[in-house]
Design a protein around this nucleic acid. Sequence first.
DNA 1: ATATGTGCAAACCTTTTGCAGTCAG
DNA 2: CTGACTGCAAAAGGTTTGCACATAT
Lengths: 129, 129
Amino acid sequence: MQALKYSRQREAIKEFLLSRTDHPTADTVYTNIRQEFPNISLGTVYRNLSLLADIGEILKISTSEGGDRFDGNTMPHYHFICTKCNSVIDLDLKNMEHINELASVNFNGKIEGHIAHFYGQCEKCISKH
Amino acid sequence: MQALKYSRQREAIKEFLLSRTDHPTADTVYTNIRQEFPNISLGTVYRNLSLLADIGEILKISTSEGGDRFDGNTMPHYHFICTKCNSVIDLDLKNMEHINELASVNFNGKIEGHIAHFYGQCEKCISKH
DNA sequence: ATATGTGCAAACCTTTTGCAGTCAG
DNA sequence: CTGACTGCAAAAGGTTTGCACATAT
């Protein structure tokens, strides 16, 4: 078991994510945190993002394009990902726990959860036409 | 526009995927195709997998653990991913197009589709306890 | 003939890790 | 004091790409 000591870097990363709703990448976190901690290393950013995601204080969002995104909002919710600009936007969609049961029909394993991402074009990209 | 010429390598890759239901990685495809084409390169495998996915003849499944998986079954369907062994299994779950409309409520972009992956433990990993 | 496909190898991008030193409890 | 955390740099893992040659049409 790991004892978890305080670290200013970790707090700053968490604070930063709470201040944003645009689901930054690890590199974006790194670039921004460096304004406060010029010597922080990318490795430390990754280690803390992993740790925070493991203990449930942030969410890690795996995307097909580019790197993973991180979310300071840990309330269960779904994401929209723009296929043009790759921006990740929160959706106002209630949790769909029931689809786990639908998926369990005729399946001989144990389904414990799901992720769902919605794709299309975001408002900005539509208007850029 | 690209003219698309026949290639034995590409056909072999497509055939291989059609013969499997376990959603192999690019590297698994490479290893197996090499039995028929000992000199094929990994680059060629990636190029053809991308091309086939682009023209809709195979599906590319992005996972959070390890590399992408590929599926010769292009019928719309959902996948279960085991959190222990990372195996990817087809689910017998009818298409849930309607959740796109649910997600569109209060959203100012255009939702064109979704992906959903279910997580948990597969039958084999449960019995390995 | 010529555009597309291939093999090879190098490059790329994101993420992880080993190490020696630093810091919190 | 001790284990957790850090910066650094190297390495890992998966994927893409530039090039010269081969092949399909």
